[in-house]
Amino acid sequence: MSPMSVVTLARSEPRSGQITVIQPRRLPRVLGALATYVGMTLLAVMFLVPLLFEFIGSIKPNDRVLSEGNSWRAFIPTAITFVNYGDALARADLAHLFINSMIITSSIVVAGIVVNSLFGYALARMTFRGRGLLIGVVIALIIIPFQAIAVPLFFMMAKIEVLDTYQVQIVPFIASPFFTYLFYTFFLSIPKELEEAARVDGAGPLTIFWRVVVPLARPVYATVAILSFLFAWGELLWPVLVTRGPEVRPLPLGIAVFQTLPPVQWGDIMAFATVMTLPLLVVFLAFQDAFVRSVARTGIKG
């Protein structure tokens, strides 16, 4: 629907019942804003309750997490202790799991950015046989969800005996048709003149890419870095399939396993949860706009 037809649609509305009052109506407006704030605050409380419960629970003695869990005291640090963090470190081997997740996630993010942006650049800017076909294939591949290939991929990885390694959790997630497509569309949108000028100056393709294109394309690099970090950091299905012992286990599977191990200490579990949540939340608060823009950008796909 074109913008024009929307306006026409709005115009064609029957006006008979409408009374146009353009007089200043101060009081209702103030009341309206007040109601909005009250509504937004109530909603905000609903969104914050689980997170607050998690943080407060992590600094309370274990028995209090349970005994005070069903009252408002669940959100008051009635007794403060950091013993839970020590216990989670010791009992869940939290530091080790954290390092595992960092290795896996950062490898996927860094390698993925390089591989997918190079491919996206070739598709957007270079002429070669099969380019059109490749673009079509990349777009078609976006539809295949990872879950649809997880079982045969697990079989392949078992056959080449790479289960229980870092590689098996990294390499399959590097190349991504969706991220390639994001890079491709972004590169199409930046003007070619700068690249051409660099070429005239005698720069090679890699130099042009690194010196001219990458700096211009910072927003899409940030988007892909943020999204691939969020996806990789939270991945649970794949480690369920390909890791058995705790050696290369990442955090999401770690917390799933930890809460089933007796004795179940909810304070320790909340400390574990906080260690997984807080770094991400801090990074999010620091780069809020980039996060929000990145997620909004996934909507461009349609």
Binding site: L51, I255, A273, L285
Partner: peptide
């Protein structure tokens, strides 16, 4: 408020599920 409503998205699903289990 936008920040608060968006915050659950940056919490890992496995963590959110854990906390809600106790809730």
């Amino acid at each position: 408020f936008r920040t608060i409503y968006f915050a659950p998205v940056v919490t890992v699903m496995a963590v959110a599920a854990t906390v809600w289990r106790l809730l």
